[in-house]
Amino acid sequence: MSGELSKSFPRLAPLLALGALFVVAPLVLYASGSGYAFRVATTIGVFAILTVSANFITGTTGLLSLGHAAFYGVGAYTAALSATGFGWPFWVTLPFAGLVTALIGILLALPTMRLVSIHFAVATLGLGEIIHVTLLNWVDFTRGPMGIPAIPGIAIPGLFKASDVSNYFAVAVIAAITVFVIHRLTHSYYGNALRALREDDQCAETMGLDIVRLKIEVFAVSCFFAGVAGALWSHTTGYISPNDFRFNESILILAMIVVGGLGSIPGAIVGATLLLALPEVLRPIGDYRMIVVGSVMFLSILFLPRGIFGEVSALDLMRRQFGAAWRRDGRVGWR
């Protein structure tokens, strides 16, 4: 019965998700009558890209990265400098920032590829600090603590002008693409290889998995999207400074994915939304709101240690609803 249902509506969940992202959410935001709501939604979108990409390396592959915000910063600066310096439009700076970040990520991460668990975490912590200090002190290139102002917004001359709404839709489109790509990698046989690497890397290698190659690929993909998120942040806020990309941000991203559910894509999105929307919703109660946010984090970990939307249920849902389920009878099988 349920099998027949899922056959007749094979793409129901993706349609609902896209409808919510591109129709319902913009209407609700518009009805709230301010650009402010759109700006909050844009921030959530940027962080959703960050959490989904960080979750790919930390949740799915089990490599605890404490330097994600630094790679986000590399992307932000690459986009800001190429947009203000060369006058490149956002649709060039976005992929460019992603590629530069992936490249820098691979070069920096190569020596760490033999490291696991806490050793990898400390190595990425060090990389993050190196990047942050470089952004802060290479004044000739990055303008140091003054940051980079007047970064052009997201606009296509003749089509639409930069606005809170154009920012929202640009971030929504990129976030959807990010989720799509990470979904394909996470919910395919490739994702199984990554989870095996997380569970027991030595054993995974004995099963024929090239674990160094897997780690490099995961790092590259994760850094690419962190860089794209940084580029979006540059273009949507118009001003960046090294302070936006400190260790605190890496920890915030980590908190989001743990609260949402390590290894779960919907969990990463839920975590980012919850921890960013809650302080905004609770604004009326003033300074008490951060106590509430802290309590939500604490209690959710206490009562839902696997996250609000844990990996096991997320895998099941995503594989069935997003066309990646394995079947014994069908010739297509699991993919």
Binding site: Y189, G191, V221
Partner: peptide, 27 residues
């Protein structure tokens, strides 16, 4: 499936392109 992936080999590009024959070999 991890053993089957080891035998078939793994490729990030094939996973992205949702390569049917690679997935069916593993399955």
């Amino acid at each position: 499936s991890v053993g089957a992936i080891g035998a078939a080999g793994h490729s990030v590009w094939k996973a992205l392109a949702r390569n049917r024959s690679a997935a069916e070999t593993v399955s």
